[in-house]
């Protein structure tokens, strides 16, 4: 089994600045204002047409935005944790789109979303054990070989855990990176959501996350829903990763905590539902930029 070392940031990589998820609602505002923002991230699946080739507004706007900004492809369709074979069709489409738009970064999720011929349109949880690790590592190897580039794997938001899990998520991800050379995408909100839902300390998780492998951070908002009555008689609450509002104060402070330890990283504001007007989204990105700059200034002062 390969034993990889973390790669230094390659030329043409994303800047250590805040980026934003690219939404059709904002195409025109972005082109008109050409805002000061580090980069944009998109789901490549939304730029693959509807089964008969791809053109029209999605390609038109992406071409123009790509000419102005670095891009990150954040895949949601590879189903890297499925025991079924990786879809060659999908890998081929990804490779074609990458050749066309030359994204600086590509990431996917530690999750599965297909079984047999069915795609579930959701990122589903995996038990963390040696068998899963072997499977996911083989799929990451296959995808990286086929696409001819390094990918990042993101820690997911989960709502259920499995009795057959034998290791922690962080150990799983660190070992996956070591075996395959893939990078990691640390989603601060996912960490917080999981910590709440499964009862662990989010700060410890953030502190233990192997920063040397982290090439991107996600910041997002979540919702709280009823989780039934606890044994203590108190109504339980479950956090759901909805990406439909600003990140909460705790997520921001966990972000600050991570960059204090690890330094700045490309940091994405993810907002996929109840999408605000562009200035509001841009303001969130500016906030992340400011935090990273302040942190940098503090480091300089200390030296």
């Amino acid at each position: 089994m390969a034993d990889h070392q973390p790669l230094p940031a390659a030329a043409g990589s994303l800047p250590d600045r805040a980026g934003a998820g690219l939404k059709p609602e904002h195409y025109r505002a972005i082109l008109a204002e050409q805002p000061d923002i580090g980069w944009f991230e998109l789901h490549p699946e939304n730029y693959m047409g509807a089964g008969r080739g791809a053109g029209g507004p999605p390609q038109y706007y992406l071409e123009r935005i790509r000419a102005l900004y670095p891009l990150s492809f954040h895949g949601v369709g590879l189903s890297i944790g499925s025991t079924g074979r990786l879809s060659r069709d999908h890998l081929q489409r990804l490779k074609g789109l990458m050749a066309q738009y030359q994204p600086e970064q590509f990431s996917e999720h530690l999750a599965w979303s297909s079984h047999g011929s069915a795609y579930m349109n959701d990122l589903l949880p995996l038990p963390y054990n040696q068998a899963t690790l072997q499977l996911v590592a083989a799929h990451v190897d296959e995808a990286q070989d086929y696409l001819g580039r390094r990918m990042l794997i993101e820690n997911p938001s989960t709502y259920a855990t499995f009795s057959c899990s034998e290791m922690g998520e962080i150990d799983f991800l660190a070992e996956l990176a070591r075996r395959t050379g893939c990078g990691l995408l640390l989603d601060i909100n996912n960490a917080y959501v999981c910590a709440h839902n499964h009862g662990f300390d989010p700060a410890s998780y953030i502190d233990a996350f192997p920063a040397e492998w982290v090439s991107e951070i996600h910041i997002a908002g979540h919702a709280m829903i009823d989780d039934g009555i606890e044994a203590s008689g108190i109504a339980g609450q479950l956090l759901v990763d909805t990406h439909d509002r600003p990140a909460c104060a705790t997520v921001w402070s966990l972000f600050r905590r991570f960059i204090r330890r690890a330094g700045p990283r490309p940091a994405l504001i993810e907002w996929d539902n109840a999408i605000p007007a562009w200035p509001a989204l841009h303001a969130e990105a500016t906030r992340a930029d400011r935090m990273m700059a302040q942190n940098h200034a503090m480091h300089c002062l200390a030296e």
Binding site: E25, Y61, V76, S113, N121
Partner: peptide, 20 residues
């Protein structure tokens, strides 16, 4: 104009969650 009428983004963690 269908711009902005593109599909809700994607899946799961990035979903058009109507969870509750």
């Amino acid at each position: 104009s269908m711009a902005g009428k593109n599909d809700c983004a994607s899946t799961g963690n990035n979903s058009c969650a109507g969870t509750a």
